[in-house]
Structures are given as structure tokens and as C-alpha cells.
Simulated scan of single mutants.
Amino acid sequence: MDQDSLPVVSVITPSFNRVDLLPATLDSVLSQSYRQFEYIVVDDGSTDGTWEWLNRIDDPRVKVFTHTNRKNRGQSASINLGLRHASGRYVVILDSDDLLAQGALAGHVEVLDKNPSVGMVYGQGYAVDEGAARLYQLFPSTHQEESDPNRLLLDCYIVSPGLCMFRKSVISKVGQLEETFRAAQDHDFVLRIAEVSQIAYSGVECFYYRKHGGTISANGKLTRWQNGFKILERAAARYPYPRSTLRRRRAVLYFRLGQVYFEKRMYVKAIFSFLTCSLLDPRRAIDVGLKGAKRPEMSVSTIHE
């Protein structure tokens, strides 16, 4: 195949039982002003008609895949299947309930083309309601990227891979998403990329995070924070993070566990988690607590911290 005919960008969407939300997601991709892309949608064993709906799409840019025997294997496995079929030199990973902003692909292709040392670029995003009306922006106007893995490990401020465009050669270097994680795999993924390449913030309006009824349950939150400890262990073994960074991140994880245990009325475990957090990093425990108590809906970190 002629190199000029290959897509520059591969957009990948994993989908499980989102037939009600997926059409808008698909439209946000297919309506991009930048045209040199392929759109890979991976159905993860849906039972709500998603697979049948996908197979009725008549657009050569859309490529539909599923797992063997249409098995449900989780979001990471679905994204990895998409990555194995991706032919673009850049990759966007967009959840099936989120939206790309107009100009997202064009803006970030330009950044990566001009900056070969950058392995990942991300832009401004907005939380939106079910009617796509803006609720709040994800980053303040003063936001700057320091390309420091320590900061990303501590604060998890890149709340969704949908904000990002990745250089596929860097993904090949760090490896695909961790399939044993059914939560927090996105944080692990962007962290590994930040450890081996430069990351950049473009300021380009690129992403809409749709808030809807399918919120994360208490059990889902518990899995996320428990996986956070595994991610921290792997990060410490992989990269020379200072001990202070690791200790402070561990404090945040115990704080978040305490919140979930309290929500589940597991008060003994909640108290133990809060006390452990305070011993590890008293000042950060207070800061995180105040931040969540003030206006949690305005904090990037309350989505995926």
C-alpha cells in the first residue's frame, strides 16, 4: 500500500453495552475536519445490540472488531486488540461515552509532527451533561505541563486517554495496556509513556467527558484505588522516583480507600486508611481532603486521581 494512502491517526474506541451513547461518539470522530484517519471500534461482547448496530455502519473509515467468540474481556484487552490492528503513526483512545471536539485531530497531529521528541500530547477538555452542554473545564487556564513523571504519578491529572494523542512508536516501546487491570489502567499507561518520552500540553480544545447515569459504583472505586497500589509498586520498580514521591502517592491512595470504605459503611477499615494516610503525609492528607470537600466537581483529580 502507498504510504500516502495510510491513515496518519488511528482512533480506537472500546465499547461494551453503549449502543445509546456510541452514535454521538462515532459522529464526533467522523465529523473531524482532519480526514487522514481510521476509526477502529472494538465491541467487548455487548448484549444490548451494539455489535449489530456497528455492523450496519457504512463508512470505509470505520473498522469493527470483537474478541474470539465475542467474549467480554475488558476495556484494556479491547484497546489492545485495536492497537494490534492500528496502522496510523499516531493513536487516539476514545471511550465509547465520550466525545472528540472539532479540531482535536488536526491540532494534535500538528504538535506531534513538529515535535518528534514528544510521545504524547494532550489538550483542554470539558465535562458535559447528557445533552453535551458544558459543565466545567478540566484544566485551569494557567495549566502548564512540566513533563515530569513525578507530578503525573502524584496527581493523575490526565483524567482520560481521550484527551491525548500518542505516538505509536512510543506505545511500542512501553507496551500495551495492562489487561489484568479492570480500573486505573489509563493512569498506568500514560505514566509509562511519561517515563520514556516528553509529554506536552497543547491547550487545544479536544475532548468532552460525558457525565451520565453510568457512574462508577463503590465497588468500582475500590478496585481503582486497590489497583493504584499495584501501579505504584510497578512504577517504583521501573523508574527512579524519589522516596518522598512514593510515600506521598501512597498517602493519597489510603485517603481514597478511606473514602470508599466510609461510603460502604466499613468504618473500621475507613479509620485505619485515614490514619495511615495521615501518618504517611499529614499535610497532603489535609490538602486532598479540603480539595474534595470544597468543590469536588471542579477538580480534575476527583475523576481519576
Rank of each mutant, 00 (worst) to 15 (best):
G123E: 04
L54A: 06
V8S: 07
L275M: 08
L6Y: 08
R249I: 09
Y241L: 12
V204H: 02
E38G: 05
R18P: 03
V159S: 09
K264V: 12
V109E: 00
S202C: 11
V118C: 02
E38C: 07
Q36Y: 04
G131Y: 09
S172E: 15
S33Y: 03
V19Y: 00
L83P: 04
A106R: 05
Q185G: 10
Q185K: 05
F139I: 03
Y254T: 07
M120R: 05
G45I: 12
K63N: 07
G258F: 10
D287A: 12
F274C: 10
W53K: 02
V29L: 06
N17Q: 10
R89P: 01
T66E: 02
S299Q: 15
P116M: 05
V29N: 01
R248L: 12
W225V: 14
N72P: 00
E110A: 15
Y126T: 12
V128K: 04
F16W: 13
D58K: 14
R56W: 03
M298G: 04
A183F: 07
E146V: 13
A293D: 01
S46N: 07
K168P: 01
H85Q: 10
R134D: 12
L290I: 13
Y239A: 05
V11P: 03
N150F: 07
E195T: 11
L83S: 04
S169N: 11
V42T: 03
R18D: 10
S46R: 08
Y201I: 09
V111G: 00
S87P: 00
D59L: 06
E263G: 13
C156K: 10
V159I: 15
I193K: 02
C156L: 14
R70E: 09
I40F: 04
Y209E: 08
S10Q: 06
S301Q: 14
R134A: 14
Q185N: 08
A293L: 15
M266G: 03
Y39A: 05
I93R: 02
R224E: 06
D44A: 09
A218M: 05
K211Y: 13
F207E: 03
Q36I: 10
A104Y: 00
R18Q: 12
L99N: 00
T180Q: 11
F139V: 08
Q259P: 00
L30G: 03
R243L: 13
T142V: 11
G49C: 11
P242K: 14
D20W: 06
D20M: 10
P282V: 13
K294L: 15
S147L: 10
R284Y: 13
P23W: 09
E130A: 13
F262G: 08
E110V: 07
L154S: 09
P240R: 11
R73C: 13
V288G: 00
Y254V: 07
N80I: 12
A132Q: 11
A101K: 07
T245V: 15
V41Y: 00
M1H: 07
V174D: 02
A236H: 05
A270Q: 02
S10Y: 05
H187T: 14
A77T: 10
G220P: 03
V19N: 03
L21C: 01
S117F: 02
R35H: 11
R151G: 06
M1V: 12
A251T: 08
G49V: 14
S217P: 10
R61K: 14
A194H: 04
D20G: 06
F272A: 11
H187W: 15
L135T: 13
R283A: 15
F166I: 07
I79Y: 07
T68L: 12
S78Y: 06
